[in-house]
Design a protein around this nucleic acid. Structure first.
Lengths: 338, 338
DNA sequence: ACGTTGTAATGCAACGTTGGAGACGCGTTG
DNA sequence: CAACGCGTCTCCAACGTTGCATTACAACGT
């Protein structure tokens, strides 16, 4: 037995003894439908549990009312929370979000940038990680896109970013305020240039320079990845390179959590021996032991702004590309100045 | 200027001087297309960057190739990780996942159960929390559904669940093995019956009974919510009710993390003074301080099985409803038997 | 020579919906 | 009384795609 076919306008029309268009008119609250007719049709709609099928409308209108969100991984707290915000924001605008995971692989990101092999969505919110900007700039797909994050700076694509240099400076300045002088930074990326790390490192460097504190290459610890484990290993390495380190700046919170674990394993007390600060303010940050000082980035702003930009483009706006910068603020918890 | 219209089969056909159907045949790798013709059409497709529009296909086939995932919140690690697994599993089957958040509100869950106001998806993976089973059982929408979790037990709907009673027993038995006798449980739900908590409590009780350890109501601490904060507050309460508590069973990991924080605030050492065990094995569990013992549930199994069940139903299968039980296993870390 | 078989391409219809044009009846106006 | 306007409803076409039926033609066997 085949799957039961969904009720269509035609079914309702037949059952009510009117034309398909009349039913459509009732459904869409068109004027010029007599109240009694409306009643009759609505009764049949109720009886047959008719629900308009998006697909017909979409076909007619050329829009699907759906957006794609493409992020490296849904289970990274930052992206999970961003997705949460975006879904909520989209909902309030009557849009639906569909999720794609790239695993940060350039190949997958290329697919996403090139457009889905079949067209499904009206727009794309994309957080690329390893796709070269040049490829982004040259994409031929005409689906409107908004980039989220540091990448894609000069691609001529709308973008919602954050001021990573200032974030790095702020975090490091806070550590300096706490009286630290041997401040390490983990997660400075080794291979492909990772802009988030690069920029936050630039800010770190600026804070040191502003304070007249000498920079020391031994205080930098690179990694490839961007998760808890990499944070832990990167901190292991840092402790080896610079045993006298008294503070760690991690370019995101999960790495900072990894750092906490590494420090704990090495018997360093936080913040007494080593202070730690991260970036993102994920929920976990305020439940770590010790609770994690961090630079919070306004994710709701990112979600709302990305949607606004995207909706403009979907509406056919072809004004010059815009870049919005999400606000951030320092959140001091136990892991610094405890 | 209106949004640029996407390239269609018709455009390609005109540019190549062939019929629409021939282009379609090329795109779909139909036999009976001469190689030279195939070449010619492919060249035009390349030139115009034609990509099939899902919408036309969907209309033709009556399927959209999309599934909805409806969970309380994307930013709860358990659901984030489940979403991650589901998206990956769907991808490998050529399906796309669209995300809906209910915030655990009965009203929103009702909307989800009733079906989207417009039909978009072929099926639904649904994790209800507060919607009465009776309402689930009576849903009129014919979109295939698979429930994930404990709820909806006798609704005649396919379900992928876990053996929460056994999970509760296992976790508690582990605490008993560690020599604990005053084992508290937090997060036993107060208001609406929350099956996860109820079942895990039943298992907790069974383990105590099996070991001949007396149960004590003072060792139970209810909450309404299900997050870090509730875990913390619930533990505060537990410590007040039963100051001699020497172990805490939290029905999920985020609550266990809240418990860790409460214990730390109260100066109780974990696991020396109080052992803690959670459920889920979220990524965070192995990075908490101390690392969290927990009962891991096989999320990949849940995702794969849910998809299998759903795809059967979408294919028109109307065999009796099935329930699958995801495997689980105890993961011992520092927070117990440290 | 003629039918049969097979390949290659086209034409038509349908999926569910809605905009716009048209049909129809009724009351108002010049 | 014809012309017109208006409210109500129906009809047609189109959105992009593909299944099925059809056509055109070549190669083959009898």
């Amino acid at each position: 037995m085949p799957a039961p076919r969904a009720t269509t306008l035609r079914d309702v029309a037949e059952a009510a003894g009117v034309s398909i268009k009349t039913v459509s008119n009732v459904v869409n609250d068109h004027p010029h439908v007599r109240p009694e007719m409306r009643e009759r049709v609505l009764a049949v709609i109720e009886r047959l549990d008719y629900r308009p099928q998006a697909i017909g409308r979409q076909l007619r209108h050329g829009r699907t009312g759906m957006l794609a969100l493409a992020v490296p991984q849904m289970d990274m707290p930052y992206f999970a929370e961003l997705a949460c915000n975006l879904v909520a924001a989209a909902r309030s605008r009557g849009l639906t979000v569909l999720v794609e995971q790239t695993d940060g692989l350039a190949e997958r990101e290329r697919e996403v940038a090139a457009g889905f092999p079949v067209r499904i969505v009206d727009g794309l919110v994309f957080s690329p990680l390893n796709l070269p900007d040049a490829e982004l700039a040259q994409r031929r797909d005409r689906t409107p896109v908004v980039l989220v994050g540091e990448h894609g700076r000069d691609t001529g694509i709308d973008r919602v970013s954050n001021d990573s240099v200032e974030i790095g400076r702020l975090a490091t300045a806070h550590l300096l305020d706490c009286g630290r002088r041997r401040i390490g930074m983990i997660g400075t990326k080794l291979r492909s240039p990772h802009l988030v790390a690069t920029d936050r490192h630039a800010g770190y460097r600026r804070a040191l320079d502003d304070a007249g504190v000498p920079a020391d290459p031994a205080l930098l610890s690179p990694t490839d990845g961007w998760g808890r484990e990499e944070g832990e290993r990167s901190t292991d390495l840092l402790l080896e390179q610079a045993p006298d380190v008294d503070a760690v700046f991690a370019p995101n919170d999960v790495m900072a959590l990894g750092a906490l674990r590494s420090l704990r394993r090495h018997g360093r007390r936080v913040p007494d021996d080593v202070a730690v600060v991260g970036v993102d303010d994920i929920a976990e940050a305020s439940y770590a032991a010790p609770t994690l000082s961090t630079v919070a980035i306004d994710r709701a702003f990112i979600a709302e702004t990305a949607l606004d930009l995207l909706i403009r483009r979907i509406g056919g706006d072809d004004s010059p590309p815009r870049t919005a910068i999400a606000p951030h603020r320092l959140v001091v918890r136990e892991s610094t100045c405890g």
